[in-house]
Simulated assay, not measured.
Amino acid sequence: MSEEELGLEDDDSRAVITAVGRQLKLWREAARLKPAEFGTAIGYGENLVYKVEAGKRIPRPEYLERADEVLGAGGKIAAMAKDVAEARYPKKVRDLAKLEANTVEMGAYTNTVVDGLLQTEDYARALYRLRRPAYGEDEVERQVAARMDRQHIYQLSPAPLLTFVQEEATLRRPVGGRMVLRHQLERLLELAKLRHVEIQVMPTEAEEHAGLAGSLRVLKLKGGTAVGHDEVQLTSRLISDPREVQVLEMRYGMIRAQALTPRESLAFIEKIRGET
């Protein structure tokens, strides 16, 4: 993926990338290097150098590392990679990822698509390409990278308990085509083998369903508090009111009880994969 265009909707990201670009320009000018000379020295084009310094492109870690070496910054430029990495992703994704990194237990019911923490890269990419108004290809890749980065939650130690309930329709909709869906189903079966992950399916034929009001997410944090998260259309909302969180916890508990058991769900997913 090339250096990404910065999303205009994210003022926090823009401020960080603008500041980094300004610092890079000051270091380059102090070294008496023209943009073309600097670009050649670090292995990038002159046009990209201009865009990075103007805050219009997000520099990848390799760009910052090479710039640090060429400009003799002694690690000062390379150290900005952490801030840049965070700024690469939309703010709502960064905020959610921070919560997930601090969770001891998370439950999610999803009724439209496969949950983001369960998605393959190809499935996520297909979803973002369906977005209207359409994303540019750079923004699609930015969003996909952010979603994949959140899946670091599976490597946390101690591992949080992660439970998911997927609506049956999400496992049958061929987002990205049949092969993308098949690989996505295989990914679900793979993740379900992890001891701290449980995946359940809510069958379409279920008569009792406590989740008809929509998808929901409940996170229990290390400090003993709990929060909810809800994302619908253009709205991404963090729910911290204890009374509202209690309602979400109650609904999620009922949803899990009404869905197929984890063992039944794996057999169900295997069956759908065989049909795909």
Rank of each mutant, 00 (worst) to 15 (best):
V114E: 05
V114G: 03
E100Q: 12
L127Q: 09
T120D: 04
Y89I: 15
T112L: 13
K76S: 12
T120Q: 04
R94T: 10
A78T: 06
A108W: 07
Y128S: 06
A85I: 00
D115W: 05
E86T: 13
N111F: 04
A79D: 07
I77Q: 05
D83T: 02
T110Y: 02
K76H: 03
V104L: 11
V93R: 06
N111S: 15
V84S: 10
R94V: 12
V93I: 15
A101C: 10
G75V: 06
N111Q: 09
I77K: 01
K98N: 12
E86P: 00
T112P: 00
K92V: 12
T110S: 09
E105Q: 08
G75F: 11
R129I: 01
A126Q: 07
L118S: 07
Y109M: 01
A81D: 10
Y123C: 05
E105L: 06
K82E: 14
K82P: 00
T110G: 07
P90I: 15
L99A: 08
A97Q: 11
A85N: 04
V93P: 00
R94G: 08
I77F: 02
V84N: 09
M80T: 09
L117K: 07
T110M: 09
R129N: 12
N111E: 12
A87V: 13
A101N: 14
V104G: 10
Y128P: 07
Y89D: 11
Q119G: 02
A87Y: 15
K82S: 08
A97V: 05
R125W: 04
G116P: 08
E121L: 02
A81I: 10
A124K: 02
D95K: 10
G116N: 09
I77W: 04
N111W: 07
R125T: 11
G75C: 08
M106F: 02
L99H: 10
D83V: 01
A87M: 13
A78K: 14
A85C: 00
R129G: 04
L96K: 05
D115R: 05
M106S: 08
L127T: 13
K92D: 09
A108N: 14
Y109D: 00
A87T: 13
V104E: 11
A108I: 13
I77A: 03
K76V: 05
V84R: 05
E100Y: 11
Y128M: 15
Y109L: 01
T103L: 06
L117Q: 10
A108M: 12
I77E: 03
G116V: 11
L96D: 06
L127A: 04
Q119T: 07
A78Y: 03
K91C: 00
L118E: 08
V93A: 12
N102R: 12
Y123V: 04
D83E: 14
Q119H: 06
Y109C: 01
M106I: 11
